[in-house]
Design a protein around this nucleic acid. Structure first.
Length: 227
DNA sequence: AACTCGCGCAACCGCCCACAT
DNA sequence: CATGTGGGCGGTTGCGCGAGT
C-alpha cells in the first residue's frame, strides 16, 4: 500500500514529530500524499495523517475522560454504534482513536449487557439494526433541500463531526446558522420533524435508503435516556 | 532482583468512499 | 462507465510499562 516499500514503521521519534508538525504548520492539513516528501519523512501518508490527527494536532485533550464525556460517549454509541469519528466529534479535543481505545478498554467491560455478549456473541454488540443509526444519511445532510439556501459546504464533508454543525467549521455560527442542530441536546433530535423535511426531498432519495431502511425508519425518537 | 502477566495506547492494516480522469 | 488515487474510518495488533509474585 502507498508504495510503502522500505517505509519506516513503529513509534515516532521527537525529530519526526517536529518535522511533521512544522510541515503541517507550513502547508496546512490535507494533501497527505505530499507530506512525507515535504517533511522529509520516511513514512507513509497514512502514518503521517494518523500521527497528526491523533497526537500532534493542537487542542487535543489528553487528560482523563470526565464523567460527562463518558456519559455522552455511551449515549452517542447507543445512537451511532462504532462510529468513533462521529462520537469523537461531539467530544471536544478527543480523537476517534482515544474514544475507541477508551471504549474498548473501559466501557465495554463495564456494560453488563455487553459483557455477556462478549462471551457469547461478540460481533453482535454494535450491529443491532434496530438500535443503531447508520451513518450514511448524515454524510449527505448538506444536500438536503432545506439546506440548499446555505453556502456551499461541500469542501467540509466531515462537518457533521464538528459539534453537529452542518456548515463549514470555519464558517459556522451557532447563533445564526439554522443548519445547526445540537446533538448534545437530544430533545432537538427527537423533536426534529424528519418526515416533514424528507417529504420535501426531490433528489438523491435513494441515498437515504440504508439496508432496507428509509429515513422514517431511523429511530430518532428512541428514548436515549433510558438505560 | 528477576521474571511473568495484564493493561493501555500508539500505530498499522485493510477496506470503503468520493472524486478526477 | 471503468479505473486510479487520495482521504478517511474501524478493527486489530503489538510494544512498553507497571503491578504482582
Amino acid at each position: 500500500m502507498d508504495g510503502s516499500l522500505g517505509v519506516r514503521k513503529g513509534a515516532w521519534s521527537k525529530v519526526e514529530d517536529e518535522l511533521l508538525r512544522s510541515c503541517v504548520e507550513q502547508y496546512g492539513e490535507g494533501k497527505w500524499h505530499l507530506v512525507p516528501k515535504r517533511a522529509g519523512l520516511n513514512r507513509c501518508r497514512k502514518s503521517c495523517r494518523l500521527r497528526w490527527l491523533n497526537y500532534l494536532k493542537p487542542n487535543i485533550n489528553r487528560g482523563e475522560f470526565t464523567e460527562e464525556e463518558v456519559d455522552l460517549m455511551i449515549r452517542l454509541h447507543k445512537l451511532l454504534g462504532n462510529r468513533w469519528s462521529l462520537i469523537a466529534g461531539r467530544l471536544p479535543g478527543r480523537t476517534s482513536n482515544d474514544v475507541k481505545n477508551y471504549w474498548n478498554t473501559y466501557i465495554r467491560k463495564k456494560l453488563p449487557s455487553q459483557r455477556e455478549d462478549i462471551n457469547e456473541r461478540p460481533k453482535e454488540i454494535v450491529r443491532e439494526p434496530s438500535s443503531v443509526i447508520k451513518p450514511q444519511p448524515w454524510n449527505i445532510s448538506t444536500k438536503m433541500p432545506f439546506l440548499r439556501d446555505k453556502e456551499d459546504h461541500s469542501e467540509d464533508k466531515e462537518c457533521i463531526t464538528n459539534q453537529g454543525c452542518l456548515a463549514t467549521a470555519s464558517e459556522c455560527n451557532k447563533e445564526n446558522d439554522t443548519s445547526w442542530f445540537d446533538v448534545q441536546d437530544w430533545t432537538l433530535l427527537k423533536d426534529f420533524n424528519w418526515d416533514a423535511n424528507l417529504n420535501s426531498l426531490t433528489t438523491n432519495v435513494e441515498q437515504f435508503v440504508v439496508e432496507d431502511q428509509s429515513w422514517s425508519d431511523v429511530p430518532f425518537n428512541i428514548n436515549l435516556w433510558d438505560t
